[in-house]
């Protein structure tokens, strides 16, 4: 299912995209286009391939087949990276050497900076604005490692904001983040949305982000099983998605237990081809 407005170039589109990790298919023939200004939530259980899909879209995972187009340009030829803001899954905000909040956010400005040039006034203003939006301007001098998990997540979002991109990819920004921090996150994303940004968000559960979502895409086992209007959290885990979700208790469930990422035994393409890759 695509948007009604087919005349506009999608901000990002993947056609017939497949990704294999260690020879095993993780994404299979995915077709997805995100129109400019759309807020899309990629949902699904752990191991359904939603994070892999985002990583494939931004070029961190090579495609085994298919093509990704960024603003109509094939990803290999795309070099307008200042239009993209990527928020990776947390745990990388702190490194071996202390870094202040301001410094981490300033790294996001590199997409627009030339080599060996000092920060311009516009750069500083953008960094400051990004910190203001996520509500961390008063903590800019602190070490990132001293912040809580939710605050570190906001630092990573500010880093993506600093480059003033128009297309955002957020990989599980709400995972392990408490409700007040999720609320700040939702306000931040609402602001971005009102400015016309395109947002692709990976989430296990939407929580306070739910009202913002225009379109939900549910993945299961590397395939898109639902693409349409936003869903409530519990709907994503409905049995009709055949979700092998651990929170649900099906005492009479006769379906064989399936582990994440392990392909169907019944799928004919896996065995002969999977070995060769």
């Amino acid at each position: 299912m695509t948007t009604d407005d087919t005349t506009r170039t999608p901000a990002v589109a993947i056609s017939n995209g497949s990704v294999a990790l260690g020879g095993r298919p993780v994404l299979r023939r995915i077709d997805l286009g995100v129109a400019p200004g759309e807020f899309v939530a990629l949902m699904g259980a752990n191991g359904s391939g939603k994070s892999t899909l985002v990583r494939a879209l931004v070029g961190l995972r090579p495609l085994a087949a298919g093509e990704v187009r960024m603003f109509g340009t094939p990803l290999d030829d795309f070099d307008d990276w200042c239009r993209i803001g990527y928020v990776p899954q947390r745990a990388t905000a702190a490194a071996g050497v202390p870094a202040s909040v301001w410094e981490v956010v300033a790294a996001g400005r590199l997409t627009r900076r030339r080599l060996l040039r000092p920060l311009s006034r516009a750069d500083r203003a953008a960094i400051h604005d990004a910190l203001e939006i996520v509500g961390l301007a008063d903590r800019r001098r602190e070490a990132v490692s001293n912040l809580s998990g939710g605050q570190q997540q906001r630092v990573l979002i500010a880093r993506a904001l600093a480059g003033e991109p128009e297309l955002f990819f957020l990989d599980e920004p709400t995972a392990g983040v408490d409700l007040p921090n999720q609320q700040v996150l939702a306000e931040t994303l609402a602001q971005l949305k009102s400015r016309g940004a395109t947002i692709v968000l990976v989430a296990h559960e939407l929580g306070p982000l739910a009202p913002l979502v225009d379109r939900a895409v549910v993945l299961r086992d590397g395939r898109i099983v639902y693409d349409g209007a936003a869903l409530a959290d519990h709907e994503v885990h409905q049995p009709w998605f055949a979700e092998p979700h651990t929170h649900h208790h099906h005492p009479h469930d006769s379906a064989p237990k399936q582990t994440d990422h392990v392909p169907h035994v019944g799928s004919p393409v896996d065995r002969p081809r999977g070995e060769g890759r």
Binding site: C82, A95, E103, A107, G108, G163
Partner: peptide, 22 residues
């Protein structure tokens, strides 16, 4: 020192740096 911003970004978070076009 001259390339410190770039080197910092790459050392801090390689994946982000790659998506930032470095």
């Amino acid at each position: 020192v001259g390339l410190a911003p770039q080197l910092f970004a790459v050392a801090q978070d390689q994946e982000f740096a790659r998506v930032a076009g470095l």
